[in-house]
């Protein structure tokens, strides 16, 4: 015991300045992230909603009156009656949304990065123009898209003049989903493009020279020099892309508001349960949040392991 106290004291005197320096962040994150997370987990075990949570009316304080219900929220979300409409349909759509958006943004970003990574007149100008979707705040560009996609808006006018069908982008479920994916891709490409361009430029040109000397075709060079060279950048941006797209709130919320149940991914759906309806269902909303977080953590774990395994077998 004494030895432990001694060690603590020693560690304190040795490290106290480090602890002082990290203390502000630890406190802020503790108050605003760790405590809410703990409280969120607790809420998921209750039937809390805006009617039975303690609140203050005038001078009277009404105490909490919600009950502990164990894991019933989770079982209700995952297997309860109507769970397909409430959870699984959104789950499937969230997965589709993430996979499609990430594939499209990374694919388009890589294509544009490859085009920009060569001697080219006006390269800087192209780059400046291509990052515009990232430079302008999302909520501004999404409103612009909303104007263009509205019934009788520009997109449908253009489609009409080409005698193509004019779906009502903001109302028909399938068209909504397409519109959401397109807008998100539009917003996400610049980041992918710039990061991958950075990766491309750091591949030493000697490798290409060597490959050319060995008679590798353009495709072989791409396959065996460019792609392996991009590995560390691309694995990072894919992970970031998945996390961001999975948690993408602003685009769907701003493009469709709260009146489009089919197009809500899990994040926006959870927000709707917690803030977009009366009574506000805090317990269910928090449960969705925890489920989301678990999915992401599990995915990240698998992704890292998959990367590690590939690293060992690659060479």
């Amino acid at each position: 015991m004494a030895a432990l106290a001694q060690r603590l004291k020693l560690s304190y005197s040795k490290y106290w300045y480090a602890y002082v320096m990290v203390a502000p962040v630890v406190i802020v994150l503790g108050v605003l992230v760790a405590y809410p997370l703990g409280r969120g987990v607790y809420l998921t075990l209750t039937d809390a909603n805006s009617l039975n949570v303690g609140h203050t009316v005038g001078v009277n304080h009404i105490p909490d009156s919600f009950n502990f219900v164990g894991l019933r929220n989770y079982s209700d979300i995952l297997f309860g009656p109507g769970s397909y409409d409430r959870f699984w349909s959104h789950f499937v759509w969230t997965i589709e949304w993430t996979v499609l958006c990430v594939t499209l943004t990374v694919g388009t970003g890589l294509g544009l990065a490859l085009l920009l990574n060569q001697k080219l007149r006006g390269r800087t100008a192209y780059r400046m123009l291509l990052v515009v979707p990232w430079a302008v705040p999302t909520f501004v560009t999404v409103f612009s898209w909303r104007l263009m996609l509205a019934d009788g808006g520009l997109v449908n006018a253009a489609l009409g003049s080409l005698h193509l069908p004019q779906p009502s982008w903001l109302e028909d479920p399938l068209a909504q989903k397409t519109a959401a994916i397109l807008v998100n891709t539009w917003c996400g490409v610049p980041f992918m493009m710039l990061s991958l361009l950075g990766g491309l430029q750091s591949i030493p040109s000697e490798l290409y020279e060597a490959a050319e000397m060995d008679g590798a075709s353009a495709w072989q060079q791409f396959r065996h020099v460019t792609l392996p060279g991009l590995r560390s950048v691309s694995s990072t941006v894919v992970l970031l892309g998945v996390i961001w797209t999975f948690n993408q709130f602003a685009i769907i919320y701003l493009l469709f508001g709260m009146n489009a149940p089919d197009v809500q991914i899990l994040v926006t759906w959870a927000y709707q349960l917690g803030f977009g309806q009366q009574p506000r269902d805090y317990a269910q909303s928090a449960s969705y949040g925890i489920i989301l977080l678990s999915i992401l953590i599990v995915f990240t774990g698998f992704y890292q392991r998959w990367l590690k395994r590939n690293d060992q077998t690659a060479i």
Partner: peptide
Amino acid sequence: LVTQMFPIAVLIVPMYYI
């Protein structure tokens, strides 16, 4: 690192109360 992947939905309700 993990904090960066938190969905807002899990935090927003408890944060509101805090």
